[in-house]
Computed example of a mutant assay.
Amino acid sequence: MKEVNVRETLPEVGRGYVFIYSPFCGTCHLAREMLDIIEKMREEDVFYEMNASLFPDFMQEKQVSSVPCLLVWKDGKVEEKVYAFESVTKIFNLMKEKEKI
């Protein structure tokens, strides 16, 4: 995963996925493991990651209500927010749908 700098990185992302987490969140650690599996399957870094504690203004601006959260990012805007990391398959299928891969 690639670390996010909100002001510099995100505006450059055409289509992307931003994993928002807290280092003290157990569910976030499980969600990260799911995303790591997808990155291993695709053999590349797919996700950006953001520690929610470091960017409270961004969290409020984008109305992120809890962590873990996966922002589906397109052309400088949040297209979708995923809060339920139910399975690797569900997240992978969401990505397939968005990317038409």
Results as ranks from 00 to 15, higher is better:
54 L>M: 11
67 V>A: 13
79 E>W: 08
67 V>K: 02
74 K>H: 07
31 A>K: 02
33 E>G: 13
73 W>F: 09
72 V>K: 06
75 D>P: 07
22 S>G: 15
29 H>K: 13
67 V>Y: 01
24 F>E: 15
56 P>Y: 00
84 A>G: 07
74 K>A: 13
90 K>F: 04
64 V>M: 12
55 F>A: 09
28 C>H: 02
83 Y>P: 02
29 H>A: 15
66 S>G: 04
51 N>A: 08
15 R>Y: 06
90 K>I: 08
31 A>W: 13
69 C>N: 14
20 I>D: 02
66 S>N: 09
15 R>M: 09
59 M>A: 10
24 F>N: 05
97 E>K: 05
57 D>N: 10
31 A>L: 10
86 E>H: 02
101 I>A: 14
32 R>L: 06
82 V>K: 14
79 E>H: 14
67 V>E: 05
26 G>Y: 03
74 K>E: 12
41 M>C: 06
91 I>N: 05
38 I>E: 01
80 E>P: 06
56 P>K: 00
39 E>M: 11
35 L>H: 01
62 K>V: 03
49 E>V: 12
24 F>I: 05
40 K>G: 07
53 S>Q: 13
23 P>Q: 08
69 C>F: 12
52 A>E: 03
69 C>Q: 04
16 G>C: 04
82 V>F: 10
3 E>Q: 07
70 L>E: 02
92 F>Y: 14
68 P>T: 03
76 G>D: 12
16 G>I: 09
81 K>T: 15
41 M>P: 00
6 V>E: 06
89 T>S: 09
60 Q>N: 11
13 V>K: 00
86 E>W: 02
44 E>W: 00
88 V>Y: 12
28 C>G: 03
88 V>G: 11
86 E>I: 10
7 R>T: 10
60 Q>T: 08
96 K>L: 13
55 F>D: 01
70 L>Y: 01
29 H>Q: 12
92 F>W: 08
13 V>P: 00
26 G>N: 13
95 M>T: 03
47 F>C: 01
51 N>P: 02
55 F>G: 00
97 E>S: 05
88 V>T: 15
86 E>P: 00
58 F>C: 08
40 K>N: 08
19 F>L: 12
6 V>H: 03
71 L>F: 00
56 P>T: 00
35 L>D: 00
47 F>L: 03
